[in-house]
């Protein structure tokens, strides 16, 4: 199996505070991996470091997109990271509220298309063709994420669960090889969570996009993940299959407590 994301020795300091402490982590092609850990463990900081929002103090982030060469991406701007094939969602939903659902997804196509100002004004044949491709591609993703009935709604008017799905759809539009989901199930009701479970599995199986997610919903994590990383105080304290993790005394002691399935 190919490793597609390799994080080595990642450290992030904010002033005197060490948010990430020599973290190693990797994701292999085709897996669903999860990062768990108590609040403030540094999970979102980790995402921000590997997506270019923060520039890590130390360490390396390497990607090997399927069929492409290995590449170091730390220090790149967020948009370059996305262009390189890693797309993310946000813990506190960050859609474009006054744009329609379709347009939100169309934004995701931006980095895969190229027409500029002149093209937009003249609207020549190639621009038109590209525009049509953007629309079709985006609509197709909306169908896959069961949002196609909401195409022309404004994003801000969507119910909560649909907003979370739309964020995933938008990220998918950038054609990533790895999707980073930051607490995708936060605030969802059981029904929505079940649908999310299905959606994530489908994305992996049908779109062959690997997934790395931060999640607190242990039931979802246990049922979905192939591997789990446990973080605490900016460090990785354990990793392994769901089975390993629930039986790992360090994890139980540090974080899960005895009542994980209570």
């Amino acid at each position: 199996m190919n490793t597609i994301l390799e994080v080595k020795d990642l450290t992030m300091d904010f002033g005197g505070l060490r948010a990430l402490d020599h973290l190693d982590l990797n994701v292999v092609e085709g897996e669903i991996a999860a990062i768990i850990g108590p609040n403030g463990a540094g999970k979102t900081t980790f995402f921000n470091c590997i997506t270019g929002i923060y520039n890590p103090t130390e360490g390396e982030v390497l990607i090997s997109p399927p069929g492409k060469k290995r590449k170091k991406i730390n220090g790149l701007k967020p948009n370059r990271v996305t262009e390189n094939g890693m797309a993310r969602t946000f813990q506190n939903i960050r859609l474009f509220p006054d744009m329609t659902v379709l347009e939100n997804v169309m934004i995701g196509r931006h980095c895969r298309t190229s027409s500029g100002i002149v093209g937009a004004i003249l609207r020549g044949r190639s621009t038109n063709k590209e525009e049509k491709e953007i629309v079709d591609f985006s609509y197709n993703i909306l169908k896959k994420t069961s949002l196609s009935h909401l195409v022309n709604e404004l994003a801000k008017n969507l119910p909560y669960g649909a907003q979370r799905r739309l964020e995933i759809a938008r990220a998918m539009a950038t054609e990533p090889f790895l999707l980073l989901l930051d607490e995708p199930a936060a605030g969802m009701n059981p029904q929505e969570t079940r649908e999310l479970d299905e959606l994530i599995t489908r994305i992996r199986d049908e779109e062959s996009i690997s997934i790395l997610m931060i999640e607190h919903d242990m039931k979802l994590v246990m049922s979905l993940s192939d591997r789990i990383f446990v973080m605490d105080y900016g460090r990785k304290i354990a990793q392994g299959s769901p089975y390993d993790i629930i039986n790992n005394p360090v994890v139980i002691k540090a974080y899960l407590g005895e009542d994980i399935y209570a």
Binding site: A87, F90, E103, H110, I117, I121, E130, T174
Partner: peptide, 29 residues
Amino acid sequence: NRLQNSRIGRAWIALREDETACQAMGIDK
């Protein structure tokens, strides 16, 4: 009118709505 419904125009609006998300979606801010 042409610009605002184009690829560039949408990027502008997205930028207005949420700069961070916009950049994370691959748009050069």
